[in-house]
């Protein structure tokens, strides 16, 4: 009886989101992911599998004899043929990693303070974190281009200081540094909010008890707050790392000649080169890499929790 009830409520709760995601995400995406095994059309799109046959009727063109002309693994081969693609993956993971770490360092104290502030201010402080992100993305990046540009105050101040040491002016805009700054900025709220949501529920009595037992501030943080907040850290890291990985607009706008990332490469396949199959291969590889990483993180996370308990 209890088991049965559990089954019913399980489907009641997980059914609607599952159905929605299958219908409006999984099915459409699988159609396109299948493109990875097909040939590109000569003029863009894909080599059609359905078309007019010799008799002039619409029919499936592919059959058991000619399927090799329509289906292939060659697109995956291309990915491994040239080390460029793997190198680009490594570079993008590196950038996304730095972005995630920087976001965590900036977001943690802020989220912790908001969670500990008086209840009546909490919502306002949370709102203030996300408010700037309701202005348009492009305009925000433009604002950074003004701040980092050669005429901007930041660049002028930095170069003024450098000049004192006899170092020539450095370019801030169109550099790796600019890409990281803007990536951190764009993703920061997606770290603060999950952290806040998690930290907000922590039981202050635990910390007080620890203090009574003579634990100092750092001990209390490392032994109690940090382990308890790990689910929030993992959630925030996922919501920053994954989107940062596929970002192409930021490197495009502020990255200069070295700002080419995996997201730019994928965009190039689908648009400029009209090579949807290879674009799909790259997308599948990226998604698999992320899922693998998530599985590892989940496994480590479970281990971490066991230690904390």
């Amino acid at each position: 009886m209890a088991y049965n009830n559990n089954r019913v409520s399980k489907w009641l709760i997980s059914g609607p989101p599952l159905l929605y995601l299958i219908l409006f995400f999984a099915i459409p995406t699988l159609i396109m992911a299948f493109a990875a095994f097909r040939f590109p059309g000569d003029y863009g799109g894909l080599l059609p599998l359905v078309g007019t046959n010799d008799a002039g009727a619409t029919a499936l063109l592919v059959n058991s004899e000619n399927w090799r002309d329509y289906l292939t693994l060659e697109n995956f081969g291309r990915f491994f043929d040239d080390p460029i693609y793997i190198e680009l993956f490594v570079k993008s993971f590196w950038y996304a990693g730095i972005t995630t770490l920087s976001c965590l360092v900036l977001a943690y104290p802020l989220a912790w303070l908001i969670a500990r502030s008086p209840k009546k201010y909490r919502d306002l402080l949370v709102l203030l974190v996300i408010l700037p992100f309701w202005s348009n993305f492009l305009i925000r990046v433009y604002a950074w281009m003004i701040i980092l540009g050669p005429q901007g105050y930041l660049a002028r101040a930095a170069n003024g200081v450098l000049a004192l040491f006899g170092v020539g002016p450095v370019q801030i805009l169109f550099s790796h540094f600019a890409v990281i700054v803007v990536l951190v900025y764009v993703h920061l709220p997606f770290m603060v909010l999950p952290l806040y949501a998690n930290l907000e529920k922590h039981d202050m009595n635990l910390l007080d008890a620890a203090q009574d037992l003579g634990a100092n501030t750092w001990q209390r943080f490392w032994r109690i707050t940090w382990p308890l907040s790990l689910p929030g850290v993992f959630a925030g890291a996922a919501l920053v790392f994954i989107p940062a990985l596929g970002m192409f607009a930021v490197p495009d706008l502020v990255g200069g000649t070295d700002g080419f990332m995996i997201g730019n490469l994928i965009k190039q396949q689908f648009l400029d080169s009209r090579d949807w199959p290879f674009g799909s291969v790259l997308s599948i590889m990226l998604t698999l890499a992320v899922l693998l990483l998530a599985a590892i993180a989940g496994w480590l996370g479970r281990g971490g929790k066991r230690d904390a308990l």
């Binding site: 080419f260 730019n264 190039q268 396949q269 080169s273 290879f278």
Partner: peptide
């Protein structure tokens, strides 16, 4: 596709 490859090399 050849140009696409050259372009990727230039960009990276």
């Amino acid at each position: 596709r050849e140009l696409n490859k050259l372009w990727t090399q230039v960009k990276t």
